Computed example of a mutant assay.
Amino acid sequence: MASGVTVADDVVKEYNDMKIMGRQDPKRRKKALFMHLSADFKQIEIDHTRALYMENCDGDKDIFKQLPDMVNCKEPCYILIDVCFAVGECKKQELVLLSWIPDTSAVKMKLIYSSSKDALVKKLPGTRHMWACSSTEELKDYVYLGEKLGATEIEGKPLCSRKT
């Protein structure tokens, strides 16, 4: 379902900056880019009130512990996350588009965000991984994301599969 929502040019610019790793000081590179709909619901734009940088996610500063505190439990958003993971011995770093549409959002907001995601995906070519979450428990569940990525390790943590 098309919503008629467009994507702001600065979203595409930030995406390109995140995609090409050599453009910035590694510590000042964005780890997570937060986006939301404009007040008139016509454009997806950067949420300048929230951002996570690589330096905020070093050592014991786990991005999956920080994300639940950075989202609003009633307002949807999109988050582009730079995820480091391993598949066997092969280390990878790829962008994952997270669609945060909480269960507690108004029905209208859920519909608008769900139908607008395609416009964002089309403007961010090469984003191969999508992750949809509707509760903070799901945001903390990096094992699920790791399984979707086929990873044996994510953000330096070995995955323990939920399958027994």
Rank of each mutant, 00 (worst) to 15 (best):
K117F: 01
H48G: 05
I81E: 10
K74W: 01
K74E: 07
G150F: 00
V12K: 00
G156H: 04
L145E: 13
L149Y: 10
W131Y: 12
F85K: 14
I63T: 15
D9W: 03
D103L: 12
R162N: 14
P68W: 11
P125I: 00
V121Y: 06
H48W: 09
K91F: 14
F34H: 08
I101M: 02
M35C: 07
M54G: 05
K31Y: 07
G156A: 07
L97I: 02
E153H: 09
I112S: 09
A8S: 13
Q66C: 09
D82C: 10
E45P: 03
T127Y: 10
I46Y: 02
V87Y: 13
S115K: 05
K42C: 01
Q93L: 12
I44Y: 02
D10R: 02
K74C: 06
K19H: 03
Q24G: 04
S116H: 01
D58N: 14
V83A: 05
F41L: 14
K148H: 09
K108A: 14
R162T: 13
Q93T: 14
V7L: 00
Y144A: 15
K65I: 10
Y53A: 12
E137Y: 10
V5F: 01
P125V: 00
V143C: 08
E55C: 01
M35S: 08
A51Y: 07
G4T: 11
C57S: 11
D40M: 04
S105I: 10
D17Q: 03
I81S: 08
D17Y: 01
G146K: 05
P102E: 07
V121D: 04
L149C: 12
V143Y: 06
H36R: 10
Y53T: 12
Y15N: 09
K117N: 06
D9T: 06
N16Y: 00
D25W: 00
K91A: 15
K91Y: 14
I154E: 05
S135L: 05
L37M: 04
K19V: 01
K13Q: 11
S3Q: 05
E45S: 09
K140G: 14
K61N: 11
S161Y: 03
R128I: 04
I20S: 07
E147H: 07
K117H: 06
G88V: 12
L159T: 02
R50L: 03
G88W: 11
Q24L: 12
C133M: 09
D10F: 00
K163E: 10
Q24I: 07
D69H: 15
L80D: 05
K13M: 08
S114L: 08
V96G: 02
L80V: 03
D40C: 07
K108C: 11
V143S: 06
G59E: 01
I44P: 01
A151T: 09
K108P: 09
I79E: 10
G59P: 02
K30M: 15
K91G: 14
L33P: 02
K123R: 04
R50D: 00
Y113N: 02
R128F: 03
Y53N: 11
L52M: 12
S116K: 01
V5H: 01
I63R: 15
D141I: 09
K42H: 06
D103C: 04
Y144W: 13
